[in-house]
Amino acid sequence: MVEAILTLMTLGLLFGAGLAFASRVLAVKRDERIEAVEAALPGGNCGACGKAGCGMFAEALVEGRTQIFSCPVADPENLERIAEILDLDIDTDSDRKVAVVRCQGDDEAAKDRFRYIGIKDCNAAQMVAGGHKACEYGCLGQGTCVGDDVCPFDAIYMGPNGLPVIIEEKCTGCGNCVEACPRNIIALMPQGLPVYVLCVSHDGPKYARKACDKACIACGMCVRKCPNEAFVLEDKLAVVDYDKCQAAGVCIDVCPTGALVGPAGSEEKRKEA
């Protein structure tokens, strides 16, 4: 009787010691921040970020494989706690990045070189004589950036005029659509900037004007008229320096083709225009 108890006690002690030893020596080292971030996340495991759950997202975030705003559910309080843990400098209002379709060349504005009758895929359209659009930079409108297999959040759809439309509230900035576009038209940009250049054409005045009514024709009006000298022309395309931009909105008023779009300037002014 006593022997049995002693034997079991000894065995128990031995196994316990072994486990204690193993948990110290063989422990998998995990970044402590991952757990902290996971705790700071909403914890719904909804998968809206594109990861399998909050744990996976936290891991990706700590390892720098995703961005903090990819969790669409997190409220500012969550975000600030995470930012503290990861020592990030964020502004929860303006740092949220969303996909922006940098082309306004819809069926009306952009001219076609020929009628494309191939399959509905921008990569295929691009392979037919370099694309049917007269503008070799503009949106081909076949919807390769749209669909469940591209956007897991239903944040992008094809508009009626052959251009994709982003639903900013749903967009998480995951960048899938950016990757899908063969012409690199979609970009992740901070939401609510004063002005966006919605054109990626480097064609310059002579050709761009013919190819599309909404093109940046590199006229330089924005460069000359911006009171804060926030614009430059880079290879025949207007580029904004957002550090200099004071949201005066003059650029939007003077742009002859409407390639510049944004909330800058006054409501009335833009209504007049």
Binding site: G118, I119, D121, N123, A124, M127
Partner: peptide, 8 residues
Amino acid sequence: RLLERIRL
């Protein structure tokens, strides 16, 4: 459009 897709 088989060939078109195969090309992709």
